[in-house]
């Protein structure tokens, strides 16, 4: 085994984890409120505002139609503005977060839409305000589904970080391109792929565990 493999993999994995954590956090902070607004402003929901609902939907669809690599290029000026550079892991967080937020918003929307109409009506009938319905009914009722959605989002962001690595973001994706592809280092290529597989498996396993524990608590018998 070449002696540079281990240090390369270590920094690559740390950079990737750093990007995933920060971009996921930012994407959730942006996407969560957007998803909630999307749901409750729909016609017949608790805060119907059809114009806002449609406008938001259109913007989200437009952002989601960009191939991710193009979106990164488009958002590079924003990175320079916020982070001061377009290179490195921190610079990549800006396009990663902005690019994933609309996806997160749709996922949140889908999860919250699963909450049965009758439960929302019960809350309305009991005099709950829209804010109380979101906090006390929609989110708690959809919790297991929300966790499954967020697991999916983190995994998608993981694959986005690898793509971002191709154009200067660092991390495992960058290793795969710069060493595995450009320098014919098969060992690096295989190691990065294995590392990414392990990461994705880990996220999925953790998400499933959390979601299942909620389901089990609410639906156990006896």
């Amino acid at each position: 085994m070449p002696d540079d493999l281990l240090p390369l993999m270590l920094t690559g994995t740390i950079e990737t984890l750093y990007m995933i954590t920060l971009s996921s956090l930012m994407a959730f902070l942006l996407g969560f409120p957007l998803g909630i607004i999307l749901v409750i402003t729909a016609p017949n929901h608790i805060w119907p505002l059809p114009h806002l609902h449609n406008a938001l939907g259109t913007v989200i669809n437009a952002t989601r139609s960009f191939p991710f690599i193009i979106l990164i290029v488009v958002l590079l000026p924003l990175s320079r503005l916020i982070v001061g550079t377009t290179l490195g892991a921190t610079a990549a967080v800006v396009p990663l977060a902005v690019g994933s937020a609309p996806f997160v918003a749709r996922l949140i929307e889908n999860s919250l839409k699963e909450v049965e109409r009758g439960k929302i009506e019960a809350a309305i009938a009991l005099g709950a305000s829209p804010l109380e319905i979101v906090g006390k009914v929609l989110i708690p009722e959809a919790l297991a589904s929300l966790i499954r959605s967020m697991t999916l989002a983190v995994i998608t962001i993981t694959s986005f970080t690898a793509t971002a690595g191709a154009i200067g973001a660092g991390g495992l994706g960058s290793l795969a391109i710069r060493y595995g592809y450009m320098r014919y280092r098969d060992d690096v290529m295989i190691a990065t792929i294995v590392a990414l597989i392990l990461l994705v498996q880990g996220f999925q396993w953790g998400g499933n565990l959390l979601a299942r524990s909620i389901d089990r608590r609410r639906h156990q018998f006896g």
Binding site: G118, K119, E121, A122, A125, G127, P140, E141, L143, R218
Partner: peptide
């Protein structure tokens, strides 16, 4: 006003959470 009007439903509509 709704807080002073109780309602029960065919499908119960309890909060599973």
């Amino acid at each position: 006003a709704r807080k002073k009007i109780g309602m029960i439903f065919q499908q119960f509509n309890l909060f599973d959470s």
